[in-house]
């Protein structure tokens, strides 16, 4: 308010630049890292490498889709990793009834966990970060009670789901692509999707406009839980093991990073699915590149931290000017 006294013009230009970087910086980032790898990383352009990268990014991307919706409402979901663990343990427990039943139970578990989050946030009025933190801790605890240690999974159908391909594209990637399409459709075309963005933009206005605010919030968290459960199923299928102890650990942070780097503000009111995809790809390539060039994992963590700070810094200017 007070600072804007001098140099009005350059500030406007800087603001425009910042806004542009916030919205499109993630694509530039992806392009830069791809170019770097083409030049410096042997075999980067191989089909096999693309498959590996795509398969690895899929679970994070699926979780990030749900996270993007939650963040668009102005909330956050820290429990996605725990929900993946719950879903993995459900697979191990119910595989005896066949893979279809096991997968369905896993998805229902994800929906139930999401419903708990949604009820706490939308109806009990607890802050999202606290409500989902509780489930982040409790959910993994429950998963470990159900399946205390790594349990191998021997099932042909699940193995195929994790490692098989259709038209040379892994099933995992197909599933991620379909889910992207579903989420994009929800956001663009449905009352639910329009409503969730409005709730994040101005909750009071949404309420006064008669939108079912609480029901929408509940549904958003349920959806996020289901998507996390899908990621849990896919990861379990690929590992051919249910490992509630380590599956999805820290994935909430990767997912939030992908969403924020992709240009969805943490304050809500906006959602960018394409940006989220690019954000997930960027983080995946960043890690892969550092590993390929023999930098220790501690370095990749610091590089991730730097990207997060950069993205949040850009998002920071949004509510000012």
């Amino acid at each position: 308010m007070v600072r804007a006294v001098s140099g009005v013009r350059p500030r406007v230009d800087r603001a425009t630049l910042l806004a542009w970087t916030r919205d499109y910086g993630v694509y530039v980032g992806v392009a830069v890292i791809v170019l770097f790898n083409i030049v410096f990383t042997p075999n980067f352009l191989s089909l096999e490498n693309f498959r590996v990268q795509a398969v690895q990014v899929a679970p994070v991307l699926i979780v990030a889709l749900g996270m993007a919706l939650v963040i668009a409402t102005g909330g956050i979901d820290l429990s996605v990793g725990a929900v993946m663990a719950l879903s993995a343990s459900a697979i191990a427990l119910y595989l005896g009834y066949g893979p279809v039943v096991a997968v369905l139970v896993a998805l229902v578990a994800g929906a139930a966990a999401g419903a708990v989050n949604g009820l706490l946030v939308a109806f009990a009025g607890i802050q999202a970060i606290i409500a989902t933190l509780a489930l982040m801790i409790g959910g993994r605890g429950l998963a470990l009670v159900l399946v205390p240690r790594l349990q191998g999974i021997r099932n042909e159908d699940l193995r195929a789901l994790g490692s098989g391909s259709f038209l040379a594209v892994p099933y995992v990637v197909w599933i991620a692509a379909v889910l992207v399409a579903v989420v994009v459709f929800l956001v663009r075309r449905t009352v639910f999707g329009r409503g969730l963005v409005a709730i994040g933009g101005n909750r009071r206005a949404a309420e006064l406009s008669g939108l079912p605010v609480r029901r929408t919030l509940l549904l958003v968290y349920v959806l996020c839980g289901v998507l996390a459960a899908v990621a849990g199923v896919l990861t379990t299928a690929r590992l051919q093991a249910s490992d509630p102890n380590s599956v999805g650990v820290l994935i909430e942070l990767s997912a939030i990073t992908a969403v924020v780097v992709g240009g969805t503000p943490l304050t809500g009111g906006r959602v960018r699915i394409a940006g989220t995809i690019a954000g997930a790809v960027l983080m995946q390539l960043l890690v892969a590149t550092l590993i390929k060039h023999d930098l220790p994992p501690s370095w990749t963590q610091m590089a991730q931290a730097a990207v997060i700070i950069g993205a949040v810094y850009l998002a920071r200017d949004r509510r000012r000017t």
Binding site: R194, V197, A198, G201, N202, A205, A206, S209, G269, R270
Partner: peptide
């Protein structure tokens, strides 16, 4: 108003 949304979205909201 829902500030970050378009004129179109704001009109159609309710």
């Amino acid at each position: 108003i829902v500030p970050g949304s378009s004129v179109r979205e704001n009109i159609a909201l309710a």
